[in-house]
Computed example of a mutant assay.
Amino acid sequence: MVENGGGVRGGRAGAKRAAGGAKRAVAGARRPEIRLPPLVAYEDEGLEPDGDYDGLCFGGTDLADAVGPGSRFMDCELRDCALDRAELGRARFIDSVLTGVRGVGTELAGASLRDVEIVDARLGGAQLHGAVLERVVVRGGKIDYLNLRTARLTDVVFEGCVLAEPDFGEAHLTRVEFRDCVLRRADFSAARMESVDLRAVAELDIARGVDRLAGAVISPLQLMELAPAFAAQIGVRVEA
């Protein structure tokens, strides 16, 4: 009897450990560790296509309408820069910080961001479709109509920011966290998710793609709030 009882207790303990393990199964995003070297002030005007920018500080630089597709920014800081209509398709940002950047219609299609922090950005209609984001933190600020269609996001954290009508259509999200941020009218159509954590979202509003949340984790309260959308997705009518 003692052995049997011990087995039951062990089974229950194992079940508890398994349940605890399930709760911890959501892999957290790996954040960038950026240590900028002493920077040199950027004193030129505009950008060049396929330009190579290393260890530079763009402080208040007006990059509106700049043409720099394919450029590489390594160990750089872009602070309070205007990026209206800047053409930065296929640009690469590595070990860099973008603080207080602002602009409408910034073109970053196919860009690569690795070990990057974006802080207090004010952007509208930023085009990042087909981009690759790896170990990126987006903290604070407001981004309207962010286009991330077909993008690949790995180890990305959206923290304390407002994303109005972001488009994640056909994007692949792996270890992506949304913390204390606002998601309004988000589009997840045909997106793929692995270890996406939505539990700490301050406001969650999904316009399309609620059926693509497999691979995401939500809170019980969020489940209740999304219940009508889930019911509509499978054709269930809810009537009093």
Rank of each mutant, 00 (worst) to 15 (best):
G140K: 10
A190Q: 06
R72Y: 02
A109F: 05
A131I: 01
V137G: 08
R208Q: 12
A86V: 02
C81D: 02
D80T: 00
G5E: 13
S195G: 01
D84S: 14
G11H: 09
A19N: 02
R212A: 12
A131H: 01
P69I: 12
E239H: 08
A227W: 04
R12Y: 11
L83A: 04
A200F: 11
G89D: 05
V67T: 07
A164P: 00
S96V: 03
D155R: 02
M1V: 10
L47A: 06
V116L: 11
L148E: 09
P32C: 14
R9F: 15
F188Q: 01
R237N: 09
L204A: 05
S219Y: 00
V119M: 11
G60A: 11
D144Y: 09
A200V: 05
D50G: 04
G55K: 06
T174G: 04
L183S: 05
V97Q: 14
D50K: 12
R139Y: 07
V156T: 10
V119I: 15
R72M: 00
R102T: 13
R199Y: 02
H172R: 11
A82Y: 03
A207L: 11
A64N: 08
G68E: 00
R72V: 07
D155T: 02
E177D: 11
L173M: 12
G11P: 00
L78G: 02
I34E: 05
R35S: 15
T61D: 10
A202R: 15
T150A: 14
A29K: 06
R90A: 13
R149D: 14
G141P: 07
L36W: 06
A227N: 03
I234M: 11
L128S: 05
L213Y: 01
T174F: 01
V162R: 09
A151M: 12
G169I: 00
A227M: 05
A126W: 00
G59D: 15
E77D: 08
D205R: 09
A190K: 12
L36M: 06
A126T: 05
D205N: 15
V104I: 05
E203P: 01
A19V: 06
G7W: 05
L98W: 03
R12P: 01
E45H: 10
A216R: 00
R135L: 08
A207C: 10
A151R: 12
Q222S: 08
I206M: 10
P69K: 06
S96E: 00
E33I: 13
E43W: 04
G124P: 08
R17W: 07
G125C: 01
E77Y: 03
G5R: 11
A164Q: 12
I234P: 02
R179Q: 07
A207Q: 10
S71W: 01
V2P: 00
D80S: 09
V201E: 07
L163S: 14
F168I: 11
K23F: 06
D211T: 09
G105T: 04
G46Q: 02
D50E: 12
L47E: 07
G51K: 08
Y42H: 08
V236T: 09
V176H: 05
V119E: 14
G5D: 14
L108C: 13
Q233G: 06
D180E: 08
A22T: 09
V196P: 03
T99G: 03
R184N: 11
G100D: 07
A111H: 01
R30V: 15
L36R: 08
L148W: 01
I143L: 13
L204V: 08
L128P: 02
L63Y: 03
I218F: 07
A109W: 02
